[in-house]
């Protein structure tokens, strides 16, 4: 089978050695902080920090290259959309107006808008590397153990890990189904017109859904026979206790969260204004 994208890769690095729970907490707090703040100084520092984290994780570029390109495309689309729908958002936020060039109609490019969108770009740049890093350095089974540890019901946590377990199988099912469908003349490539193509996709999805239901039925029987869900609590074979580095990581993220929140809000506005 072809190599899986964005899958857990087992390198030995400080990031990999952190427990899943520590990474999950870190990632969650990190994302919230980056979402709240529009303070350019904080975002720049966070961005540099995330690059540093990436460097020490030893994750290879080709493991996430495809996903990164995909995100970049959406990133560009998103920026165009922001400008199209709200070309003067920056002016509204920062309260001043410095034109760069008039394009057409209501569309004028302003320094305020450029700065505003630059901040948004930075937010992307802060959150995405951490998200990728979290996915690629966390062992899926440890991930469900950590979900359980941070308070999720174990049945929900386990279903996450099961989903991960069955992704390759369902990919294989899909491949087989689509092959045999194509052999019968069900074309889902661009050669077919859109309405027909959608209809054909449904023809392929039908058996995929049915076989997946069959799978779920089988697996839930097997799990029931082995005592899943009988008790209030369960333990985890792959759980790991917090080590020194985990506490340090939690400490760092707590510090980052407090600092960014303080810097962002101490002058009363989420936006760092360079135009005053």
């Amino acid at each position: 089978m072809r190599a899986t994208m964005l899958a857990y890769t087992n390198h030995d690095s400080g990031i990999h050695r952190l427990t899943g729970a520590a990474k999950l907490i870190f990632f969650a707090v990190w994302s919230v902080s980056a979402m709240i703040t529009y303070d350019t100084r904080c975002l720049l520092v966070l961005f540099l920090f995330s690059l540093f984290a990436f460097k020490i994780s030893k994750v290879q570029f080709q493991d996430y290259a495809f996903v990164l390109y995909l995100i970049l495309i959406f990133f560009v689309l998103n920026h165009i959309a922001i400008f199209l729908f709200s070309p003067l958002e920056g002016v509204r936020i920062y309260g001043t107006r410095h034109d760069v060039v008039h394009i057409a109609g209501r569309y004028t490019l302003t320094w305020e808008q450029l700065f505003y969108q630059f901040n948004i770009a930075l937010k992307y740049a802060v959150v995405i590397p951490m998200a990728l890093l979290f996915l690629m350095t966390t062992d899926p089974s440890e991930f469900s153990a950590s979900l359980n540890r941070v308070g999720f019901n174990y049945k929900i946590a386990y279903s996450v890990s099961l989903a991960l377990r069955y992704i390759p199988d369902i990919q294989r099912d899909y491949e087989n189904i689509s092959f045999s469908a194509q052999a019968r003349g069900i074309d889902i490539s661009r050669k077919e017109k859109l309405p027909r193509r959608l209809k054909n996709i449904i023809l392929i999805l039908m058996p995929l859904i049915l076989t997946s239901i069959e799978r779920i039925d089988k697996i839930s029987t097997a799990m029931e026979l082995r005592g899943f869900g009988q008790k209030e609590k369960r333990t985890w074979y792959r759980a790991r206790p917090f080590a020194r580095n985990d506490y340090i990581a939690i400490g760092i993220i707590a510090g980052i969260a407090v600092l960014t929140a303080w810097i962002t809000f101490y002058d009363g506005s989420r936006y760092y204004n360079i135009f005053k």
Partner: peptide, 24 residues
């Protein structure tokens, strides 16, 4: 294939014990 619940051999064998809440 259909009854392999763990992501590794070790976890799959441990599944029953995990559900019993046996200490790690």
């Amino acid at each position: 294939d259909g009854q392999f619940v763990g992501l590794t051999v070790g976890e799959d064998i441990a599944f029953r014990l995990e559900n019993e809440g046996i200490p790690q």
